[in-house]
């Protein structure tokens, strides 16, 4: 069931249009990851879902409510993590969690969250003295303490160390598994790949890719064989024999074959090089990652501009 519905969303700051016609949905029990370069319109989009940013045009509905007009009603049902703030700097994690738990009718036990997010050892330290990662973990705890149906997280792992990221990822997937809809922005593409069920890539306020992660990967993905050879290879002969295109993308000793890679082709390449007495190294096959797709799409968008 779609709990976030955005249709033809436009957000302008003066004459500058930050978001230019976005449409997407997020469903219960799903994680939607919003990706895009700095200034792409990610935070403006999330803020319009939270009711902080008024759309210039288009419609935004979260759990059937208009965030602009029904922000307080929405506040009972959603959990929000803003970028880097929202807690009085004198408050300790323990006090902040108790306060936020006090806002909701059926909150999660703050102690349970402290344990899960490994906040126990700093529960008496004031917010201003916490490290970046500790602050992020606390802000995430505050976002979820009210058992929200929809969770909106703006760069939840920004400034967090690898161990902290695992803890945060575990909680986000737990929320998804328990039926919440999670929408998050991030610049960490590996993380997006680990977490995302659905991905929205934005550039210059427009959607350049949107859909299930597996579909996007199958649409844009390709496999490749790479190897290195200090001995120059006759590319025409190679291509004639193996019926594939051999690239030398950087003009050095690195050779790349892209396209439909199958194990017999790998064997044929190995055989060909051995027959020609080519002393090759680092032969490997690889699939395109979300990072490759993201970089390729955003670069295409940049070139199109």
């Amino acid at each position: 069931m779609a709990v976030i519905e955005v249709s033809d969303l436009h957000i302008a700051y003066g004459s500058k249009e930050a978001v230019a016609g976005l449409s997407f949905e997020a469903e219960t029990g799903q994680i939607l990851v919003v990706l895009g370069p700095n200034g792409a319109g990610k935070s403006s989009t999330i803020e319009s879902l939270e009711g902080f940013r008024k759309p210039s045009s288009g419609t935004v509905r979260v759990l059937g409510l208009d965030p602009q007009k029904q922000q307080r009603e929405l506040g009972k049902k959603i959990g929000v993590m803003l970028q880097g703030g929202g807690v009085n700097p004198r408050m300790t994690p323990s006090q902040a969690l108790a306060l936020f738990a006090g806002y909701y009718q059926n909150p999660i036990d703050p102690k349970e969250l402290e344990r899960f997010l490994e906040l126990d050892h700093i529960k008496g330290t004031s917010f201003r003295r916490l490290s970046g990662g500790e602050k992020q973990r606390l802000l995430l705890a505050l976002a979820v303490v009210g058992r929200p149906e929809v969770v909106m997280l703006d760069e939840p792992t920004s400034g967090v160390d690898p161990a902290g990221r695992v803890v945060i990822r575990n909680l986000i997937t737990k929320l998804r598994d328990e039926g919440a809809a999670v929408i998050l922005t991030t610049h960490e593409l590996g993380e997006a790949e680990k977490l995302g069920d659905r991905v929205l890539i934005i550039a210059k306020g427009r959607s350049i890719a949107y859909g299930d992660l597996s579909t996007i990967k199958s649409q844009h993905s390709e496999t490749q064989i790479t190897f290195r050879s200090s001995f120059p290879i006759d590319q025409v002969d190679f291509e004639t024999h193996l019926k594939v295109r051999l690239e030398r993308p950087f003009g050095n000793d690195l050779y790349v074959i892209r396209g439909d890679i199958y194990s017999e082709l790998v064997a044929q390449v190995t055989r060909y090089l051995a027959d020609k007495n080519v002393n090759f190294t680092d032969l490997s096959t690889a699939s395109t990652t979300l990072e490759d797709i993201y970089l390729s799409l955003t670069k295409q968008q940049e070139v199109a501009k």
Partner: peptide, 19 residues
């Protein structure tokens, strides 16, 4: 003013407490 600068007021806008 401290609450406003640290985003506390903004954050409270999306809780059942409201402004």
């Amino acid at each position: 003013a401290v609450d406003r600068t640290y985003g506390v007021l903004k954050r409270l806008g999306v809780t059942p407490l409201g402004k």
